[in-house]
Amino acid sequence: MLAKRLIACLDVRNGCVVKGVSFEDLREAGDPALLARRYNAEGIDELVILDVTATVEGRRALARTIRAVSRELFIPLAVGGGIRSDDDAAAAFDAGADKVSLNTAALSDPPLLTRLADRYGSQAVVVAIDARRSGVGFDVFARGGQAPTDRGAVEWAVEAAGRGAGEILLTSIDRDGTRAGFDCELTAAVSSAVSIPVIASGGAGTFEHFHDVFTIGRADAALAASVFHFSEHAIADLKAYLRDTGVPVRC
């Protein structure tokens, strides 16, 4: 049976992980390759490296990071953050990324999704959608959640899938950083509208939140960053919990 995936997100700046790393026995906690190795040993299903710098120096550091992580990890690796062009995507793939995640660039240049899908396959193209609740639905925001757009989340997800995106990384801006739970309504609305997998993001705080987003939210995968730093065996424990509550996971 197809497993629900747990995806860890590493926010990386100039080659260092910048968000909430607190493994006590990991002296070089900021080293993404060490953290990735740790996650892998705990059974994470996939990794996302999010570049939060997007400067020229940051890009070089990012390529080194992707190389270091992909050399020893044999699980899917997605790279996002500041991928704006065919060349940015090519650099990420050359360094060892399996997927690139596009957000603002896909909104401003939707054919980019199709060009990348034609060149690398749809499985390598993730569209990242940042959405916020509005009166009637869910509005899409660009530029890291800062810039409003005239698009609705469900409509944009359907269009992006039609243009060649192979997965949707759906972040609830309302829930991001709150640890109040994923937005299951948003996730279910998008997941029901498309046939490609939906990765839910934003709001993870407890094991129950993951259970809810996989069942009520109909998510195919769930992504979190700092929640996996809660304890040393968070991922293994979470998987055991999900398995015991009837959610299929890889173990």
Partner: peptide, 29 residues
């Protein structure tokens, strides 16, 4: 959902040197 994306289990139906040492019900991507 189609496409089929993610980790799923193998059911072994035959023998071959290419699967030597592979755990039954292994997950692959």
């Amino acid at each position: 959902k189609i496409p089929h994306v993610g980790w799923n289990t193998l059911s072994m139906t035959g023998a071959s040197p290419v699967v030597d040492g592979l755990e039954p019900d292994s997950f692959v991507y």
